[in-house]
Simulated scan of single mutants.
Amino acid sequence: MAVIEFINGSNNTYKGMKRAINYIKNPLKTAEHLTGGKDCSPDTVYEEFVITKQNFNKEKGRQFIHFVQSFSPNDKATPEIINEIGKKLLEHEVFNDFQVLYATHTDKEHLHTHFIINSVSFSEGCKWQLSKEQLESLKEYSDELCREYSIIVVDGEKGKHKNRGEYRATDKKQSFKYELYLAVKHCKWCSRSKDEFIENMNKLGYKVDWIDERKYITFTTPDGKKCRNRKLYPPEQFTKEALLKAFELNRQKADKKQLEARIELLLTAIEMISKDKSNNHNYHLPLTSLEGQAKKERAIEGAKGRGLDWDKEY
């Protein structure tokens, strides 16, 4: 999967910030279409960073944060895909209200994206901080993006690699969460109410602890693992408010029979996969396996529209 590494530069001053910006924008390392800015323009990013600091009288101390998201040299993803992953990474909540410059470099054997974060928030003037828990959350989000784009995973043994499907089947810590993500995502668009959502999740084997007075929803997997909705990515799509909004849209756009047909189709497919023990890696993760089958079908017969489109928000 992608590796996130923070670079601790010794010269974290205005001059150091300017050098870092110029370095990641170097046309010998990247291209204009692979360079972008979150809440800032790549052309005037240095000046914008400085103005933000001056507005809040925060010109002392650390001036910027520099980190890199690197990918395996064995991956066949294009620079444009890697750049898109980097852009989506900045949707994580740790970057809220902070200006970020990013650029994907193609000068090495492995593709990688550099990020320069302004150390001062443009909305509140607070300094950027990252706790251990937030760092772990950011890495998990990066992993989810890698799954979405079928990025290769390095399995820890030199020279050996696994694709995303193999990784989901063998890494229990991540696979159960991804399986839950698929279950919630599907039931989100197959339900017209909170109660119907819980009922559909129950049909898939999941318990749902949704108490109005509590901020988060807690899901319990068929084998007893617990996970809150804030751990699913992108988290803003799985808040109580986002789910309730989806239920309302479902009420407006689809009748009960259509939604029931979707969940029954899913249950039938899961039952078929679970009975096929020959696929001993994935039969206990039927939604993950079903997603993989759907992607293969779309690749082979995309023009015919076959397969389940897991990525479409119905």
Results as ranks from 00 to 15, higher is better:
204 L>E: 11
204 L>Q: 14
205 G>W: 05
205 G>C: 02
205 G>T: 06
205 G>V: 00
205 G>N: 10
206 Y>K: 09
206 Y>H: 03
206 Y>S: 08
206 Y>L: 06
206 Y>Q: 05
207 K>S: 10
207 K>I: 00
207 K>D: 07
208 V>C: 13
208 V>M: 10
208 V>Q: 11
208 V>P: 03
208 V>F: 10
208 V>W: 10
209 D>I: 07
209 D>F: 15
209 D>C: 06
210 W>A: 15
210 W>H: 13
211 I>P: 08
211 I>Q: 15
211 I>A: 14
211 I>T: 12
212 D>V: 10
212 D>T: 10
212 D>S: 14
212 D>W: 07
212 D>Y: 11
212 D>M: 08
212 D>F: 11
213 E>S: 15
213 E>H: 12
213 E>D: 08
213 E>C: 13
214 R>V: 05
214 R>C: 07
214 R>D: 04
214 R>L: 14
214 R>H: 15
215 K>P: 02
215 K>H: 02
215 K>R: 15
216 Y>T: 00
216 Y>C: 01
216 Y>N: 01
216 Y>G: 04
217 I>S: 10
217 I>M: 12
217 I>F: 09
218 T>S: 13
218 T>W: 01
219 F>C: 10
219 F>R: 01
219 F>A: 07
220 T>W: 04
220 T>M: 12
220 T>C: 14
221 T>V: 14
221 T>R: 13
222 P>W: 05
222 P>Q: 08
222 P>Y: 06
222 P>S: 02
222 P>C: 04
223 D>P: 05
223 D>W: 09
224 G>E: 10
224 G>N: 10
224 G>K: 15
224 G>R: 06
224 G>W: 12
225 K>A: 02
225 K>Y: 05
226 K>P: 05
226 K>C: 04
227 C>R: 11
228 R>P: 09
228 R>N: 02
228 R>E: 03
229 N>R: 04
230 R>E: 08
230 R>D: 06
230 R>C: 01
230 R>I: 03
230 R>L: 07
231 K>A: 10
231 K>E: 05
231 K>R: 11
231 K>C: 04
232 L>H: 12
232 L>M: 14
232 L>F: 11
233 Y>D: 01
233 Y>S: 13
233 Y>H: 11
234 P>N: 00
234 P>A: 02
234 P>G: 00
234 P>L: 02
235 P>L: 07
235 P>W: 00
235 P>E: 06
